[in-house]
Simulated scan of single mutants.
Amino acid sequence: MLTLHYLSDSRAHRIAWMLEELELEYTMKVHRRRPSGLAPRELERLHFLGKAPLLEDGDLVLAESAHIVEHLLDTRAPQLRPDPASAPEQARSHRYWLHFAEASFAPPLIMKHLFDKVRERTPSLLRPVTGIVPSMLGKAYLDDTLAKHAAFVDSHLRDREFFVGDAPSGADFMMIFPCEAAAARYGGRYSALLDYVRRVHARPAYKRARKRAGVPYMYD
């Protein structure tokens, strides 16, 4: 039996979407963030780092989204991974986007999000001081990097319904989270990226995952 530990406002939703697309039987245990925004301590009983998503598969406790996605591809859905022998280009593309999601696209988006949160929680009189470093870093690195990444993803999606092939694959389950973050930040500036997010949100499996979780998600 599979058990997904789902944390509100987290990457865990991509795993819930994958499980629903695969129509697998699983239990979802929902965890809410503390007022500080951190994950609850109870997750530390399952994994040393105490973060989510976590997936229990029998005696295994799996952490890290890409690790979980690849485990499910290996054990439950090999058909969602292009075959390197018969479709080498698709297989390389699938592997690339699966890793691009967290290695390149997500880090600057998360950094920008954290800077925004710091600014929101800082007393107004201190914002001119505490905002200096985030502003300098944004202008020197984050803004250009984010725009370049979003444009790159947008160009890839212009003539595609999904990242690889004509149905959701491991690449999509990984890429949806940073795509949602980029769409929320840029709106219609990158139309193909935004349309992709809307297509995913309209899928019955995605909607079932949201309904099953029943807790807030920052990109609803």
Rank of each mutant, 00 (worst) to 15 (best):
residue 1 M to G: 08
residue 2 L to N: 02
residue 6 Y to E: 07
residue 7 L to A: 08
residue 10 S to R: 06
residue 10 S to L: 04
residue 12 A to V: 10
residue 12 A to F: 07
residue 15 I to D: 00
residue 15 I to Q: 00
residue 16 A to R: 11
residue 19 L to N: 00
residue 19 L to Y: 05
residue 21 E to R: 01
residue 21 E to I: 07
residue 28 M to C: 10
residue 28 M to W: 09
residue 30 V to A: 02
residue 33 R to H: 09
residue 37 G to Y: 14
residue 37 G to T: 15
residue 39 A to R: 03
residue 40 P to M: 06
residue 40 P to R: 06
residue 42 E to N: 02
residue 43 L to M: 12
residue 45 R to M: 05
residue 45 R to C: 05
residue 45 R to Y: 15
residue 46 L to A: 13
residue 46 L to W: 11
residue 47 H to I: 15
residue 48 F to T: 14
residue 48 F to M: 14
residue 53 P to Y: 03
residue 58 G to P: 00
residue 60 L to P: 01
residue 61 V to K: 00
residue 62 L to S: 04
residue 68 I to G: 01
residue 70 E to T: 14
residue 73 L to E: 12
residue 76 R to P: 02
residue 77 A to W: 12
residue 80 L to W: 13
residue 84 P to T: 05
residue 86 S to G: 14
residue 90 Q to A: 15
residue 91 A to E: 03
residue 91 A to T: 08
residue 92 R to T: 12
residue 93 S to R: 12
residue 97 W to A: 08
residue 98 L to C: 09
residue 98 L to Y: 11
residue 99 H to V: 14
residue 99 H to K: 13
residue 100 F to R: 10
residue 100 F to H: 10
residue 101 A to F: 02
residue 105 F to G: 01
residue 107 P to H: 07
residue 108 P to Q: 05
residue 111 M to H: 11
residue 112 K to H: 10
residue 115 F to M: 10
residue 118 V to I: 14
residue 119 R to N: 15
residue 122 T to Y: 05
residue 124 S to P: 02
residue 125 L to Y: 12
residue 125 L to H: 07
residue 126 L to N: 00
residue 128 P to H: 04
residue 131 G to D: 08
residue 135 S to E: 13
residue 138 G to R: 05
residue 140 A to M: 12
residue 142 L to P: 01
residue 143 D to K: 09
residue 143 D to M: 07
residue 144 D to V: 12
residue 145 T to Q: 09
residue 149 H to D: 06
residue 149 H to A: 08
residue 154 D to G: 00
residue 155 S to N: 09
residue 156 H to Q: 11
residue 157 L to D: 04
residue 157 L to T: 09
residue 157 L to A: 07
residue 158 R to A: 11
residue 158 R to G: 05
residue 160 R to H: 14
residue 161 E to N: 07
residue 161 E to P: 00
residue 166 D to G: 04
residue 169 S to Y: 13
residue 172 D to N: 06
residue 174 M to Q: 11
residue 177 F to Q: 03
residue 177 F to G: 01
residue 179 C to N: 04
residue 180 E to F: 02
residue 181 A to Q: 07
residue 181 A to H: 03
residue 182 A to H: 02
residue 185 R to T: 13
residue 188 G to Y: 06
residue 189 R to G: 05
residue 192 A to V: 01
residue 195 D to M: 05
residue 195 D to W: 01
residue 195 D to A: 10
residue 197 V to P: 00
residue 200 V to S: 00
residue 202 A to D: 08
residue 202 A to Q: 06
residue 202 A to H: 06
residue 204 P to K: 10
residue 204 P to N: 08
residue 205 A to I: 12
residue 206 Y to I: 12
residue 209 A to P: 11
residue 210 R to P: 02
residue 212 R to M: 14
residue 213 A to V: 15
residue 214 G to L: 10
residue 215 V to A: 12
residue 217 Y to I: 14
residue 218 M to F: 15
residue 220 D to H: 14
